[in-house]
Design a protein around this nucleic acid. Sequence first.
DNA 1: GGAGCCCTGCGA
DNA 2: TCGCAGGGCTCC
Length: 346
Amino acid sequence: MPELPEVEAVRAGLARHLTGRRIADVEILDSRPLRRQDGGPEAFAQALRGRAITGAARRGKFLWLPLDDGRALSAHLGMSGQLLVRGTAAPAVAAASGAHLSPPGEPPPDLTATRAPSLVRDLSCQPRHLRIRLLLAPLPGDAPGGVALDLVDQRMLGGMRVTELVPTADGAPGGQGSPEPLVPADAAHIARDLLDPVLDRAAAVTRARSSRRAIKTVLLDQGIVSGIGNIYADEGLWHGGVHGSRQSAALSRRAVERVLKATASVMERALAVGGTSFDSLYVDVEGAPGYFARSLAVYGRAGRECRRCGATLRSEVIGGRSHTSCPRCQTRPRARGTRGQPGPRL
DNA sequence: GGAGCCCTGCGA
DNA sequence: TCGCAGGGCTCC
């Protein structure tokens, strides 16, 4: 499922393939991903026809393609959304979703070979769960069949809309890939993400510590720091040595800083290998999966051994989300009258 | 700040 | 057949 590293991999691909392209037509196979579009599907198509894409930007898990009329096509992939570029200049390469995931323990294939700036099947390929297709005006050197951007989404928890761009609250660039101090109106309430150079990390720590909720819930709150989903929240907490049920306000400043730093570090390492393809639901714009799943320490590993101490990892529910943790490496809240669980000093 | 909903596929 | 998984929005 796409979190910040996966969305960033998608953004980079969109920037590479789509910047400067013009949208010729819009095909809506299922209008449900457009449920938040003002004016409905017809307004969506109308707003995009004839517009040129001027870039690709991202804040947290929100993506947007700025358009030449000052508005933007904004997209959130939810948990199963994929944006796939089809039929670019070079011949199609077999890159079926998840088809070249290596078994755990085996070295990843040559990333430079799988990430050539080309590929992806032609437009005659209509994948299962294709919801929206943007047909792009042809350019010299394009594949004969044409070029398109497909929104493929199994579960449709995300969506797309054409929206106004509004000034950022702090006057700084809107996000990765956006030199302008603008963000889509529907992402204006989203905080800067952990990999954003403009993020005021000290202020984020203060905001996190002002909440009485569990630290795990706070990490997932996109209004405090954006881009963290369930996978990287669990990984960051494990690396930071803090159990997700600890009340955020009860943690030391240093502990919150350590967790945020650890989470950012995990996301940076994931980004370097194309993100996490925990299942077949995440691939980049060229259909290639990421290779970070093999490096996950806790997420999806409940009942298995902790890679640090060998204890059996546990799973529980915090704030309605699963949380996998090590009972030995991650400190829990102290019960009344006890000295708490063993673990790293905070 | 928490619960419920959206939505589909999968495993029990 | 049912419960779960997930992010974000709406409602209370």
